[in-house]
């Protein structure tokens, strides 16, 4: 996805606690509204990013709450990009097996991310794991939406 250089970019650091997830969804929802995403696109984006963060908190936080998770959000006219970085050992996404439906007490996060995003990448680095998600705006971007993004950029 080609995001404009003038995109809104936010970098959020949280400690590894799930009570931060609703706050994160609120921020993502505001950016989605600014982009003119449809309600369905906004909900999809919130859920996909929340799943990435919940995984980072649950599996990528070796020191518990103090490990911390960083979320970078870039909202441009093409859509939204999110990078969720943790401090875990990472995992081989190809080695993950999805349990049978009746046994699915877990293992549903990555399938949801993939189904609800236009692109998902799992990147291992020296510090931990980064999940990069892209959600394009497929609906028509309203003038208000575009204008709102521009106004926010000027404030930042």
């Amino acid at each position: 996805m080609a995001l404009r250089r003038s995109a809104t970019e936010l970098c959020i650091s949280i400690d590894s606690r799930p009570e931060h997830l609703p706050r994160l969804r609120t921020v993502v929802g505001c950016l989605a509204a600014d982009l003119g995403m449809s309600s369905e696109e906004a909900q999809d984006t919130k859920l996909a990013i929340t799943e990435a963060c919940a995984n980072a908190i649950r599996h990528g936080s070796p020191d518990g709450a103090g490990s911390g998770v960083t979320i970078k959000l870039v909202a441009g006219r093409g859509g939204m990009l999110a990078e969720v970085t943790d401090h875990g050992d990472g995992f081989d996404v190809n080695a993950i097996t999805v349990p049978a439906p009746a046994e699915r007490a877990g293992g549903m996060g990555i399938p949801l991310m993939r189904a609800l995003s236009d692109r998902v990448e799992f990147l291992r680095n020296a510090k931990g794991m980064t999940v990069r998600l892209v959600k394009k705006v497929k609906g028509r971007i309203t003038r208000r939406g575009v204008a709102s993004v521009r106004n926010k950029r000027q404030r930042i």
Binding site: A54, E103, R104, G109
Partner: peptide, 16 residues
Amino acid sequence: EYIDSSGLGTLVGGLK
């Protein structure tokens, strides 16, 4: 208004 995989997993646990 919102459910994620943890909520779904809880329902599966309840079903078991």
